Simulated assay, not measured.
Amino acid sequence: MRTKISDLDKIDENQNVDIKGRVIALRKHEKTVFLDVEDETGKYQVLVERSIFDSSPIRVGDILNLEGHKFKTGTNHPSLQIREYNFLVRPVDYMTSDSETRELILDRANVENTISSFFRDRGVIKVDTKVLSEYSGSSDIIPFKTSHRGKKDHFLRFTMELELKKLVAKTQMPLFEIGHVFRNLGKSNRRSIEYTSCEACIPYLDFEEGITMAENLFKTLAQSYGKEIGEIPRVSIEEICKQLSGKPNFELTDDMKKIYKKQIKKMDGPIIVASPPGQWTSPLYVQDENGTARDSRFLYGGLGTIIQVCEESTDYDRIVRSISDQQERLRSTGRESSVDPSFLDAMRSGLPPSIGIHISLDRFLMAFRDENNIGRVKI
């Protein structure tokens, strides 16, 4: 039975073991050969008698099954004395063992598992919704387009929000999804055309409860990296813009929005930025009487939004009107757009009062791995 390398420390000396792994280093001596053998859990030093080695030479990169027993060398180094071995794979060419990729795989798995456990513990159910749609959506984001046998166009999703809302409207169940979204925008160190995202739609949660849930999730994720986050301060977008303008009276114009967007990319946080003007955010979010949207964003690491919390609009007439206005605006720029009629049907049947939570896994990993290039956190 195979023993994982990480379990060798629990095994007594002289006890026979069977390990499998790749040779990542090899040191020849007159009577012995030392190998460093690595599996998915770690690496270990292995000793092979030179006579055994010479009868069936091993190369760096070979994947072996090795049988032997534990002992300590003259320098008191834990090792395995190999009795026999056989080759499982002998690669034609071998790339250096990539510990960075292994670490990234584990980090991404940790983030996804932490998010999934957090939501499951609160009764939120994981689902998988479709990635391809027959409808382009009405957004400033230009979707990627493909076709079915060259006949009917299909579009890669740029959000999971609409599909989750459809399901919540039908079932009243709290749902979340982790998956890929695609955005046909420019690429840079901080922007990609493919993102790993988590989106949740949770009915019968009020806006403040949603912010508290997101804050607890952020702190839980930080703890998984050994970082303790205290109380996170909140500031309104109006306060930030007032400081940027240097004037007590100012207008939230498109130019001010551009200045604000540049500023938040410099904010290390953690900080919660709240209450954007309704025209600066999605028309599918609830707006207060003063015209501000119930939309809060967690900023961290100078990377912009890590988590977004919003209160979803349940006003069917407003939703239809907003989508129609957006389609007309896109049409004026030469772009045609289409909206899934089953989404409108679901909204007509009544979406329960719900909170949406959006999490950028890529930006979180950039912040906590201290990376300034999004490509460095993708597998």
Rank of each mutant, 00 (worst) to 15 (best):
I5M: 06
D7K: 14
D9L: 14
N16C: 12
V17E: 04
D18C: 14
L26G: 07
L26K: 10
L26H: 06
L26Y: 07
K28H: 10
E30I: 11
K31P: 10
D39E: 00
K43N: 15
S55N: 11
S56M: 14
L64F: 05
L64H: 01
L64A: 00
E67Q: 15
G68W: 13
G74Q: 11
T75Y: 08
S79H: 03
L80W: 00
L80P: 08
F87H: 06
L88I: 07
L88S: 00
V89S: 07
V92I: 14
Y94W: 10
M95L: 15
S97H: 11
T101Q: 12
R102Q: 12
L104Y: 00
L106P: 05
D107G: 10
V111H: 02
V111C: 04
E112N: 13
S116W: 12
S116K: 14
F119R: 02
V131L: 08
S136P: 03
D140W: 15
I141E: 08
P143S: 07
S147P: 04
G150P: 01
G150S: 04
F158C: 03
L167N: 11
A169H: 08
T171V: 08
Q172R: 15
P174V: 08
E177H: 06
V181E: 00
F182W: 06
R183W: 05
N184A: 01
E194C: 02
Y195E: 01
T196H: 13
C198V: 06
A200G: 02
E215T: 09
Q223N: 12
G226T: 02
E228N: 08
I232C: 03
P233G: 00
P248W: 02
E251H: 08
E251V: 08
M256E: 05
K257W: 09
Y260C: 03
Y260V: 02
K261V: 12
Q263M: 11
A274G: 12
S275W: 13
Q279A: 10
Y285V: 12
N290M: 13
G291E: 01
R294V: 05
D295V: 07
S296V: 08
L299C: 04
L299V: 02
G304A: 03
I306S: 00
V309K: 02
E311S: 13
S313V: 06
S313K: 04
I323M: 08
R329M: 12
S338Y: 14
F343L: 07
D345A: 14
L351W: 04
S360I: 02
R369V: 05
D370R: 15
K378R: 10
